[in-house]
Design a protein around this nucleic acid. Structure first.
Length: 293
DNA sequence: CCTCTATGGCGAA
DNA sequence: TCGCCCTAGAGGC
C-alpha cells in the first residue's frame, strides 16, 4: 500500500496513538532487537513522513527510519483491554506499544536507528513532496525540463518528486493527457504546474481516505452506471492495472508496457503519442491484450 | 494446497 | 539485471 499518502497517513496515526508518552519498543523477530532496547521506554516526540520514508522521532536524537518497500505493512491496533497486546503473529520486526495501542511492522525494506543528521541526509536526497507544505515544485521542474528521460520515469524518481508511486504516476499522466514515454524536456511549464497541483490535491485526498481515487465525478461508477472496481486496491482509477479494459473517457482499450522495470498503463487515445522530428515515440510500445492475473 | 503478482528500492554481481 | 524483504490477495488445481 505504500505511496506517499500511506506514509503520511501512518505518521499522523502513529503520532496520535503514541506521541508524547513513553513507548515500549521491541523486535519480536529479533532483527531490530539491539536498537529497540536502546529506545525502549523513551518518549516518542512525533512521527513524520518524507516521500515514502517514515521517521519515528524519539527523545535524545534517536530516530527510527522506516521504509516499507513494496510489501511492508505497519499496522496500528487499539486494545479492547488495556495492556493486553497479543503475541506477535509472523515476522514482526518492530512493535510499538503503550497501554491502549500497539503497532506491528512487517516486511519493511528498511528499519534503522539513526540520528537527525541521518534523517537530513535521507531528506536531502529527495525531490519535493506534494504532501509537504514546504515543498518547492520548481526544483522538480528544473530537472524535468532539462531531461530527455521519459516523464513516466522522472515522475516516479524519488530524487525528482518524492512520494509518487506506480499508481499516482499512471493516473496523473492520464489525467493530463501525457504519454508516459514523452521526454521530460517536451513538457511545457504550465503542464508541469498542473500536474503538481493535481498531485497535491489527489494525494491529500489519499491521506484522508487511505486509498487512491483519481476519477473525476463524471467518471465514478455511480455517474457512469458501471460496476465499481473490485480488487485489493479499492480506489477508482482510470488506467492503473486496467490494461485491455475500455477507457472510462473514450472507450479505447487501455495499454500496458514496462518502463524502467515497472509496469505502466495508459490510454492510447487520451494520451497521444508524442511526435518529434518526424519520429514517433512509443507507437509500437505496449500490449492491450495481456492482463495481470 | 501451490504459484503469481504487487502502490519499492537497496545492494550484490 | 537479479535477489531480497518475506506480506497479502487472487487465482489455479
Amino acid at each position: 500500500m505504500p505511496e506517499g499518502h500511506t506514509l503520511k497517513r501512518l505518521a499522523l496515526h502513529l503520532t496520535e496513538a503514541f506521541a508524547g508518552r513513553p513507548v515500549r519498543v521491541s523486535s519480536p523477530q529479533g532483527r531490530f532487537a539491539a536498537e529497540a532496547a536502546t529506545i525502549d521506554g523513551s518518549t516518542l516526540e512525533r512521527a513524520e513522513s518524507a516521500g515514502k520514508h517514515l521517521f519515528l522521532d524519539f527523545a535524545a536524537d534517536h530516530l527510527v527510519h522506516i521504509h516499507l518497500g513494496l510489501i511492508g505493512v505497519f499496522e496500528i491496533s487499539t486494545l479492547a483491554t488495556p495492556d493486553a497486546a497479543p503475541a506477535p503473529i509472523g515476522q514482526v520486526r518492530l512493535r510499538l506499544s503503550n497501554t491502549q495501542s500497539y503497532a506491528d511492522l512487517r516486511g519493511a525494506t528498511r528499519c534503522d536507528l539513526i540520528g537527525s543528521i541521518g534523517r537530513a541526509e535521507v531528506v536531502a536526497a529527495l525531490g519535493p513532496d506534494p504532501l509537504r507544505a514546504d515543498a518547492d515544485p520548481d526544483l522538480a521542474w528544473q530537472r524535468i525540463r532539462r531531461s530527455n528521460r521519459a516523464i513516466g520515469d522522472l515522475v516516479m524518481d524519488q530524487a525528482v518528486l518524492a512520494g509518487i508511486g506506480n499508481v499516482y504516476r499512471a493516473e496523473v499522466l492520464f489525467r493530463h493527457g501525457i504519454h508516459p514515454l514523452r521526454p521530460g524536456s517536451s513538457l511545457r511549464a504550465g503542464q508541469f504546474a498542473s500536474i503538481w497541483a493535481d498531485l497535491v490535491a489527489l494525494m491529500a485526498t489519499g491521506v484522508e481516505t487511505g486509498r487512491i481515487d483519481t476519477v473525476r465525478p463524471e467518471h465514478t461508477p455511480e455517474a457512469m452506471g458501471r460496476p465499481p472496481r473490485v480488487d485489493d486496491h479499492g480506489g477508482e482509477v482510470y488506467v492503473y492495472r486496467r490494461n485491455g479494459m475500455p477507457c472510462h473517457v473514450c472507450g479505447s482499450l487501455v495499454r500496458t508496457g514496462e518502463l524502467v522495470g515497472r509496469n505502466t498503463f495508459w490510454c492510447p487515445r487520451c494520451q497521444p503519442v508524442f511526435r518529434s522530428r518526424g519520429r514517433t515515440v512509443g507507437h509500437t510500445h505496449g500490449r492491450s491484450t495481456r492482463r495481470p492475473t
